[in-house]
Nucleic acid binder design. Structure first.
Length: 205
DNA sequence: CGGCCGATTATCT
DNA sequence: GATAATCGGCCGG
């Protein structure tokens, strides 16, 4: 499947967050493909968005978000977790789409080995920090080009367009001290059916 | 299954 | 010095 073009990322954060659902996140590791279908995302856009890290303006951490679209923004939080975003919108406007959940597809057993907890084996990759663990991602790949199919991390197009009736929206997760309306705007997107059934019935892989 | 809570440190005020 | 785009373990129902 073809790598997503940069033009796809150079659009509004909400559109990109919607369209990344059903696409395949691929991590190349020692020549092997660790991959999964993206099933949940969130949009963070602009310095006005009080939930977006760019609310603080340009800082060493947010610099990547001001750069060209289609690159990875990977940051550290809660003293122990790495979270993966795709930088979106034209260069100069700080915005990103957080990848919150994937359905593991290729080399699932290897991905499970990178997870510290062996409990809840049904939930290997259904959280933003769980998927970075499963794909062995951290700050080393911050800023890498997600549009480079020869790179270590990229995203491939969905094998078919996901119908709107399979997309659910809601408020973003984990915002505790963020003021309204930012705390409640429905900028989270997820595929309704998150399991194996989804990719079989829809012809993914 | 759902709610509560401690872990742990880079980043910004 | 406070906070954080989270997780996993432990508890009760």
């Amino acid at each position: 499947m073809a790598c997503l073009p940069r033009s796809l990322f150079e659009r509004s954060a909400l559109q990109v967050a919607r369209d990344l659902l059903g696409c395949c996140l691929v991590r190349m590791k020692s020549g092997r493909r660790l991959s999964g279908i993206i099933v949940e995302t969130e949009a963070y856009q602009g310095e006005e968005d009080q939930a977006c890290h760019a609310r603080a303006g340009r800082t060493p951490r947010t610099e990547v978000m001001y750069g060209p679209p289609g690159h990875a923004y990977i940051y550290f939080t809660y003293g122990m977790h790495w979270l993966l975003n795709a930088v979106v919108e034209p260069e100069g406007f700080p915005a990103a789409v957080l990848l919150r959940s994937i359905t593991a597809v290729e080399n699932v057993e290897e991905m499970a080995r990178y997870r510290p907890s062996l409990a809840n084996t049904k939930h290997w990759t259904d959280g933003p920090a769980k998927l970075t663990q499963a794909l062995d991602l951290d700050g080393r790949l911050n800023g890498c080009d997600l549009c480079d199919p020869s790179g270590e991390l990229f995203i491939e197009a969905a094998s078919q367009v996901l119908p709107d009736d399979q997309v659910e929206t809601g408020p973003r997760v984990g915002l505790f001290t963020v003021p309204e309306p930012w705390k409640s705007v429905p900028w989270r997107f997820q595929v309704r059916i998150k399991n194996l059934e989804f990719r079989i019935s829809n012809g993914f892989f």
